Amino acid sequence: MKKTSLRIMVSTLAITMMAGVFAGCGNKDGGEVKNNTSNNAAQTQKLSGTVQADGSSTVGPITEAMAEEFVKDYPDVQIPVAISGTGGGFKRFVVGETDVQNASRPIKEEEKKKAAENGVEMTEFKVAYDGITICVSKENTFVDTLTVAELNKMWAPDSTVKTWKDIRPEWPADPIKFYTPGPDSGTFEFFTEAINKKSKAMRPDVNPSEDDNTLVQGVGGDKNAIGFFGFSYYEANKDKLKAVKIDTGTGAVEPSLNTIKDGSYKPLSRPIFVYVNNKSFGKPEVKEFVKFYLENAAEIVPEIGEVALPEAEYKEQLNKIK
């Protein structure tokens, strides 16, 4: 698989993966990811059905990339990947509507309870690390670093910040336009917990969207805009965005694959997940897709712009598959 094609996938939000025939086993060779499963060609052609996935816009591009490669080996399998946000996806998952839930935060206790009430048991798989990235436009020449206290001052529910000058007196008195993921987004919840110390606590005058590409366009097109989203969306749009460093009191740290991986990008580094309905493991197409996901994540995840786990962790999680 070529890196450029994976970058394009970050801009694709809800698609049904189409057919394509692909053979071979092993790791990446000649720029393409190959299936590591032990099925022979005859078995490959017999697998069919649909794997329903929904949830996070951060994890969605990873699942889409996996699906695109998987259907090359299994052309009769369809994998529509919907993007309704982590919270929106869990609403469907806990009532048994989907097989795979993409999640940029762990499942909540109330969601677990709802799942239990509906007889839905699940398995959690950690698939990558992400860093929520605060961005301004490339045309913004003065914002380079923000402290956690300044971020809270800007984004708190009772914030009185209207212009850049309200944050630092040497900055211009131009009005700020705020962009955020929608309230069903796990990214939104994680950010508000980390910065405002309460889930979903946010100033009321933001421009929300569950479509991260809408946020990218809004921030990138306005020198007085600021917003936040998953690291992969920044990586794919560096031509129009500038990442803001965060200073927790020990120096400014820029989000990068290395600082997210080593945990120094605080407080916005986080693990991201997929959850699988245990009943769905009874469907061969779901079981094989999850195996494929874990077997190829170490290679595909970095090409999407996220941080892969050590390969041994993916292999260990294969033991969770029922």
Score class of each variant (00 low, 15 high):
residue 159 S to T: 11
residue 319 N to P: 00
residue 130 D to L: 08
residue 277 N to M: 05
residue 212 D to V: 08
residue 104 S to D: 08
residue 171 W to G: 08
residue 19 A to Q: 10
residue 270 R to G: 09
residue 268 L to F: 13
residue 41 A to L: 15
residue 236 A to E: 01
residue 278 N to V: 02
residue 51 V to Y: 06
residue 166 D to P: 11
residue 31 G to M: 08
residue 201 A to C: 07
residue 225 A to V: 08
residue 157 P to R: 03
residue 191 F to W: 08
residue 167 I to G: 07
residue 83 I to S: 07
residue 183 P to L: 05
residue 216 V to T: 09
residue 188 F to I: 04
residue 155 W to M: 14
residue 174 D to P: 12
residue 225 A to Q: 02
residue 221 G to F: 02
residue 162 K to E: 13
residue 299 E to I: 03
residue 218 G to N: 00
residue 96 G to I: 13
residue 95 V to F: 02
residue 13 L to I: 14
residue 251 G to M: 06
residue 22 F to S: 15
residue 53 A to S: 13
residue 231 F to P: 08
residue 282 G to K: 12
residue 137 S to I: 11
residue 224 N to G: 12
residue 39 N to K: 07
residue 192 T to C: 15
residue 234 Y to P: 04
residue 64 E to K: 13
residue 154 M to I: 15
residue 321 I to H: 10
residue 112 K to Y: 09
residue 196 N to W: 06
residue 126 K to H: 07
residue 317 Q to N: 00
residue 7 R to I: 15
residue 212 D to F: 15
residue 293 Y to I: 02
residue 99 D to A: 07
residue 162 K to F: 13
residue 82 A to K: 03
residue 35 N to G: 13
residue 69 E to Y: 12
residue 319 N to R: 10
residue 137 S to A: 11
residue 193 E to R: 12
residue 213 N to D: 00
residue 167 I to R: 03
residue 316 E to G: 01
residue 290 V to Y: 00
residue 177 K to M: 10
residue 157 P to C: 12
residue 192 T to Y: 04
residue 129 Y to M: 14
residue 212 D to A: 11
residue 293 Y to S: 06
residue 187 T to Y: 06
residue 251 G to A: 11
residue 316 E to R: 04
residue 137 S to Y: 13
residue 162 K to Y: 14
residue 198 K to G: 09
residue 166 D to S: 12
residue 255 P to S: 07
